[in-house]
Design a protein around this nucleic acid. Structure first.
Lengths: 242, 242
DNA sequence: GAAATAGTGTCTTTGAGACAATATATG
DNA sequence: CATATATTGTCTCAAAGACACTATTTC
């Protein structure tokens, strides 16, 4: 809800004055994930200003006065990756608002999760080249700014769950992909191998998950693979299992 | 993230001045659900002040300057229901921040989902008796203040999903409950009957979901039922299915 | 005893997983 | 041909769902 009370939660007086409530800054921050087998990677930026100058942080920034939360996230995603917004998946993750999380002032971070296909270019379309893709496995030892370490954890958890019962996994692939590529997305995110035979059958049994293109593409070794496009379904029925 | 940039997202200058970012108000608003077969109910309050004076809204209020988001939600939950915080389940739902959602100023609502056991008392422990439990089925026609209608929808969706693969359903029950009562929670939330026989077996097969008390309790009609307490598990393995 | 609710047994179908077998490429 | 990857086939096991059946109460 919005201000359904015009006074701080800690007292019961009904006022109607802007000075009644404490001012907050609001940022939109992104956990942008991609799958580069055998690593899952997250896009990080290096801070130039204090606090946490020189440390790595999530891309993000203050939400504009007339900007919706989603718009702010979309803007930052396009700015940092150069990827068209409709080619990526973007969903709200959670909000983080510990009073001590930013030493300067009270800041609420609305975190978003973005899933993008492996960008061939290291950091494409970014004018500021302070950004880099990092293995999520190394993020723990990187000591990110603010509480960004735990936000990355939350995003990774969410992504691992989402691909289980939604059709989001192809978001990590090119427009056309092979079963092997799709399987590798799952294996990389879940961290363990899947049986190719069973995976194949389960994906094809899930209605409208993928559609055959009719084409095949050569492999480095072995039999050429059929290619697929993502289908119209948004939920996996039945779901895949880790 | 917090302010990893000290300027609005719409320009690239690196400043460090509070006037650089627009001021927001932040509220914590609650979707408090309970199950009163055959209805799912949500706790609403009637607004006394404009905007939306006289309309129903979610309980909530501004987050205090030194209050964490969770604290603000816990405070409001205790204030409105009188239920001990550890007897209820409280989780963050999502944040809503459309620029036009509050006519007075820019307000970000951090919404929370609370699940509580059927409070025998209509609205217990509330000093302000402007609160009431409403059937969620009627919420659509109630035209809630702000965007609270869609927040209730989101909360209901989340609750329906959560009980599928977590052990939260007993949160809607008393400390000790029968299989019939637990099943009714699922049936009420999911809106369709479940086979008592299969439900029984599946619940007992889910490790540490429930523990038998050894007692039985008389029914209005029919054979007395064994009672159970919630077990230590937090996830259902395997999950129940709608 | 009739009716209602609780709880058990059993059968069928479906999906998961293991793994053998086949297909088609490269070196 | 050896090897690697893709793809299909088959078998076993476990869980889901339908439903008959038994147990124990109230009226």
């Amino acid at each position: 809800m919005a201000a359904n009370r015009t006074t701080p939660i800690s007292n019961g007086v009904e006022g109607y004055d802007p000075s009644d409530f404490p001012p907050f800054a609001v940022t939109s921050d992104l956990v942008i994930l991609t799958v580069r087998p055998p690593q899952v990677q997250v896009l990080l930026v290096q801070r130039e200003q204090p606090p946490y100058a020189g440390q790595w942080a999530l891309p993000g920034g203050f939400v504009g006065a007339d900007q919706s939360l989603a718009e702010a996230a979309q803007f930052k995603l396009a700015d940092k990756t150069g990827i068209a917004v409709d080619a990526a998946h973007l969903e709200q993750l959670a909000s983080f608002g510990d009073p001590a999380r930013d030493p300067r002032m009270r800041v609420i971070s609305v975190a978003w999760l973005a899933l993008v296909a492996d960008p061939q270019d290291p950091v494409a379309g970014t004018e500021s080249s302070d950004a880099a893709w990092m293995d999520v496995a190394k993020v723990g030892s990187l000591d990110l700014a603010f509480d960004h370490g735990s936000i990355v954890e939350a995003g990774l958890d969410r992504a691992r769950n989402r691909i289980e019962y939604t059709t989001l996994a192809p978001t990590f692939c090119a427009d056309e992909f092979t079963m092997g590529e799709l399987r590798t997305v799952y294996e990389t995110l879940w961290g363990h191998p899947l049986d190719p035979a069973n995976f194949n059958r389960k994906v094809l049994a899930s209605t409208d998950f993928v559609e055959p293109t009719g084409d095949v593409v050569a492999q480095a070794k072995g039999r050429p693979a059929k290619t697929y496009r993502r289908g119209p379904a948004s939920r996996l029925t039945p779901p895949l299992q880790r």
